[in-house]
């Protein structure tokens, strides 16, 4: 009998894929087990090979959605999710607004300080997070008194996302021909009209990417959030998930269920937009 074409390759790839998605299956299996246990099956005192194998097969002993139900009824997870949504949404709005206005200035106008400003934005990407953490913590919570508030987190997230978004938007604005605006000026449009009614609609794809980036930045961030939000009711979803399994608590069922809820939108978005993300990343990396 002749083996199908690329048989060996398929075997190799399939087994590697299984290995790759094993942690994901692990999460699903724990989430739907209805328990807080980290193991799939109880191993008897004198285990047979089958018992042992059973313990690593990512399939729960019984399937139940109890963890998901409890997450919303017994745990404050809904509040955390809501906090995350509010913070991420406001960050996106603020971040996109700040990024597109200043990117427009950098792209369309020639003014003193333009080059310096853009250079500074680039260099700021190199500031290590921990160097910023302490001053930010002092400034936001102690001086501005914005600890435990949405606003503090939103401000910080939006500003940290600015440099990347500005460079991204500027690149796109540069590709929009100036003639369009010039003819609009001829027709008597004001500068604000040109920006809001002509340039922004044309830059819709870049706006989408910028918005997505801002959203992801705040949706996935947990260090700043865990520093700023000390009150349990103000946790964002990432801080809450860490809370389930960090320190001395080990509510793995809640964690797994929550992890699925939190990652699902992000993963779907990622898979949908991966083409753009990858081309953007590599283009950026070549330019330095």
């Amino acid at each position: 009998m002749r083996l199908p074409k690329h048989f060996g390759l398929h075997v190799g790839l399939t087994s590697f894929c299984l290995l790759t998605i094993y942690p994901i299956l692990w999460v699903f299996s724990i989430a739907f087990s209805g328990e807080q246990n980290i193991s799939f099956a109880n191993i008897p005192a004198d285990p047979t090979a089958w018992d042992r194998l059973r313990a690593i097969l990512p399939w729960p002993e019984q399937i139940s959605i109890q963890n998901f139900v409890d997450l919303f009824t017994q745990q404050p997870f809904f509040d955390w999710l809501l906090n995350s949504v509010i913070v991420a949404a406001m960050t996106t709005i603020l971040g996109v607004f700040l990024a597109c206005t200043s990117a427009y200035a950098f792209s369309r106008f020639r003014f003193p300080g333009r080059r310096t400003g853009m250079m500074m934005f680039l260099v700021s990407q190199m500031f290590p997070g921990t160097l910023m953490l302490i001053p930010l913590y002092i400034i936001v919570t102690k001086w501005l008194g914005l600890g435990n508030s949405y606003f503090g987190l939103i401000l910080v997230y939006a500003t940290t996302a600015i440099p990347f978004c500005v460079w991204m938007m500027k690149g796109y604005f540069d590709t929009i021909p100036k003639e369009i605006e010039e003819s609009a000026i001829m027709d008597g449009a004001s500068s604000a009209t040109i920006f809001w009614k002509i340039v922004l609609p044309l830059a819709r794809p870049a706006l989408a990417i910028t918005a997505l980036f801002s959203f992801m930045t705040s949706w996935n961030e947990f260090i700043l959030a865990s520093l700023f939000m000390e009150d349990e009711a103000m946790y964002t979803a990432p801080v809450g998930l860490k809370f389930f399994v960090g320190g001395f608590s080990s509510q793995w069922g809640y964690f797994a269920a929550g992890a699925i809820i939190v990652s699902l939108p992000v993963v779907l978005l990622f898979l949908y937009l991966q083409k753009y993300l990858i081309s953007g990343l590599t283009a950026g990396s070549v330019k330095g």
């Binding site: 200043s102 400003g117 600015i162 500005v166």
Partner: peptide, 12 residues
Amino acid sequence: AYSYAMPAIIGM
């Protein structure tokens, strides 16, 4: 130009 660039620069 400055009025467009200002919000982000102040924030940064």
